[in-house]
Write a protein that binds this DNA or RNA. Structure first.
Lengths: 210, 210
DNA sequence: TATATTTACGAACGGTCGGTCGTTTTGTAG
DNA sequence: CTACAAAACGACCGACCGTTCGTAAATATA
């Protein structure tokens, strides 16, 4: 832990900028975002941003990292408090939807937005976003696999497909919420996964929410 | 049908521009799209575009309409050839995934891209996109409802949730395909809906693909 | 106090954006 | 051929973009 007031100030600024940029990125897009926009929203000068990131792209990469930290803190970590198995998979889905419902990010889901923005634009940013998506899906599959090996789900269950369904219902929720309303949307998203899980559970496991 | 060669030329140009703009919009985004980009790709002048649309926004709205026509022609209309009921719902899902697989649009799904781009940016474009989404979901729900009234699905089935699940699996497919590969992705998307439908079908109906 | 270093700023640059305007080209009609 | 209309163009505008640079303020070290 540094004591240097200059470095501390810099670190604080950096964090504030990333917070703001993350918010704005969910609204205007990670690329649609302009540096003036970020600077003005924070009351700092545009050129001052270049003291911390040498280019817009560098800032965008930092924003992705920041978004990942937020996702880990708000979705992944809380879910890890549930024991491995179906309970953990459900907790993941539930906390994810809860994060969307909390409206912490005004523009919905940063990663979904960024993915659809960059899915056809080769470059460093798309590669990084692809990595993030890969890590997330790998994690989801791992949790689904555990649910089988632990004995919560029937042996034949395909973890890949289960992860796919879980991801589907999650993404679609953040998509439909503005139009369909929170109650209906997240209700569907939760009930649909429960309906999907129930026939897969073994007789030894029956603690699923109603 | 007009015979005036000038109007015919104009109409042809307009169609060519919309085709090109639709392609580019799926790559750069409906807003990220620039008029110079469109003009250059077609070998026409930028100012010439203003002879057909009085502003960029007018062109963007026309592109949305064009995308809807394409979607209707490629997904909705073919599916309507299947009889009302589960078969039609499945045909809808299947043709939609087939449209994604065909790679007609290089950037995946226009409507998904545009939705995530504008979901937090109030204005005419977002309103129009919301209308399109509403129409699509209403149609999906109608088809799901028919599947119940026609007797293919059990009476208690919730058409809203069924439509939600179908939409989920479709959207997620276009999202995962670049990373996971077509075979696995669309395989999951198809199998997952079949798995979801099977326990809902009545005994009188059992023609679902394997 | 003198000297570095980090942070932040204002002014300016080239480039691209959406948009305007007057003109030329292309085609129709009398 | 003349008169007219639609389509398309080239030149240009102000605004905003990301970026650079020289400088000033804040904070450390000696």
């Amino acid at each position: 832990m540094t004591q240097d007031g200059r470095l501390i100030r810099g670190e604080r600024t950096r964090a504030a900028v990333l917070d703001q940029a993350l918010l704005l990125a969910t609204v205007s897009g990670l690329d649609g975002l302009s540096l003036s926009q970020v600077a003005d929203a924070l009351g700092v000068s545009k050129s001052g941003l270049f003291a911390h990131w040498r280019s817009k792209e560098a800032l965008q990469l930092a924003v992705i990292g920041h978004a990942r930290e937020q996702w880990t803190a708000r979705v992944v970590r809380p879910a890890l408090e549930s024991p491995p198995g179906v309970r953990r998979l459900w907790a993941l889905h539930d906390h994810r939807l809860g994060f969307y419902e909390s409206r912490v990010l005004p523009g919905g889901c940063f990663f979904a937005n960024a993915h659809f923005e960059f899915n056809a634009r080769p470059g460093v940013l798309r590669d990084r976003l692809a990595t993030e998506q890969h890590d997330w899906m790998a994690f989801l599959i791992r949790v689904a696999t555990e649910a089988v090996t632990v004995g919560d789900l029937r042996p034949g269950t395909d973890p890949g497909e289960l992860a796919y369904v879980t991801e589907s219902l999650g993404v679609c929720a953040v998509m439909q919420a503005p139009l369909l309303g929170d109650a209906l949307t997240f209700g569907h998203a939760r009930r649909a996964l429960l309906d999907h899980l129930r026939p897969l559970t073994t007789t030894s496991f029956s603690e699923l929410p109603t």
